[in-house]
Simulated assay, not measured.
Amino acid sequence: MSQKTLERIMPWAVVIGLFLFWELAVRVFDFPEFILPAPSVIFEAMWQWRVPILENAAQTAMTTVVGFAIAIVFGLVTGIIIGSSSLIYNGFYPVLIGFNSIPKVAVVPILVIWFGIGTVPAIITAFLISFFPILVNVATGIATVEPELKDVLRALGASKRDIIVKVGIPRSLPYFFASLKIAITVAFVGSIIAETVASNKGIGHLMIVASSRFEVPLVFAGLLVTAIMGVIMYVIAIAVEKRMTGWSVREMDGPAAGS
């Protein structure tokens, strides 16, 4: 079996093995369903409640994608501005770190007061929680351009804007796409947090309602659906990253690696 074939099979084998181990552990130790349902019971609940799950999953996916898209725009622009100037970088970083340290669940009640219960608080929470990783990585990518390279470019007549546009931004792209893979997963966390507190639809709301009725398999079904959506978005981010920044990836298993 080739290395590439094994790499394709391995994720599926790990996931299937995890579910089999989970199923076996529940059966052997006889965990009550209201504490830890078996995967077979969770899949049954997913099929039984497929219509409300799909409707609420669509809502969660929409709020997450919208919040994530806004975070990409603001994070990219702000990261370029902050990374382009050491004065701005040093001035704004304490504020940004302090803001990021605030638990976003504590911000949701304020968003409810401002915007009411519904979609808007979920979008804003997804934006707030995914904005910081993008900003930090883009700013770091631009700010860490080698001083020697800057000196050479200035000697060749390049302006500060030329250095940022032609060197800084391309150099920050691997950082940027790495941050997207982190941000998209935490964006779902933001949406779910807001939906559990301030929404009448979405996977978070569905899980709260299910837990209040002690329908634990449905709660786990909501968690599983959220995980699936996160994996899908992560795979999309990887595909775009390979398309845009393939030049930055070196083959590790080629002939040179073994020589």
Rank of each mutant, 00 (worst) to 15 (best):
222 G>P: 07
46 M>Q: 05
236 I>D: 00
2 S>V: 05
110 I>L: 15
243 R>T: 12
218 L>D: 06
238 I>L: 13
104 K>W: 04
175 Y>P: 01
156 L>S: 14
74 F>A: 15
11 P>M: 06
128 L>C: 11
11 P>V: 10
79 G>N: 10
215 E>M: 13
95 V>M: 12
54 L>P: 00
212 S>V: 01
187 A>W: 09
163 I>D: 10
257 A>S: 15
171 R>L: 13
211 S>L: 11
107 V>S: 02
77 V>T: 14
243 R>F: 10
134 I>C: 00
76 L>R: 08
229 M>W: 11
170 P>Q: 03
158 A>V: 05
95 V>W: 10
18 L>A: 13
62 M>I: 05
82 I>N: 03
81 I>M: 13
216 V>A: 01
74 F>P: 01
10 M>L: 15
185 T>S: 15
80 I>P: 08
204 G>I: 06
67 G>E: 03
25 A>R: 01
121 P>S: 10
237 A>G: 09
180 L>C: 12
176 F>K: 04
45 A>M: 10
46 M>W: 02
95 V>A: 14
10 M>I: 04
44 E>P: 02
229 M>E: 11
73 V>L: 13
125 T>Y: 04
257 A>N: 14
137 N>Y: 03
31 F>H: 04
134 I>Q: 00
102 I>L: 13
193 I>D: 01
14 V>Q: 04
129 I>D: 05
128 L>S: 01
102 I>T: 13
124 I>W: 05
175 Y>V: 00
184 I>F: 06
169 I>C: 05
239 A>R: 14
185 T>V: 15
214 F>M: 14
257 A>H: 15
1 M>D: 10
239 A>C: 01
180 L>Y: 07
30 D>A: 13
256 A>C: 03
98 G>W: 07
222 G>H: 10
158 A>M: 04
121 P>I: 08
82 I>L: 15
191 S>H: 06
74 F>Y: 10
252 M>W: 12
118 G>Y: 07
122 A>W: 08
131 F>I: 01
251 E>P: 04
130 S>N: 02
138 V>F: 00
140 T>D: 11
246 G>S: 14
203 I>W: 07
58 A>H: 05
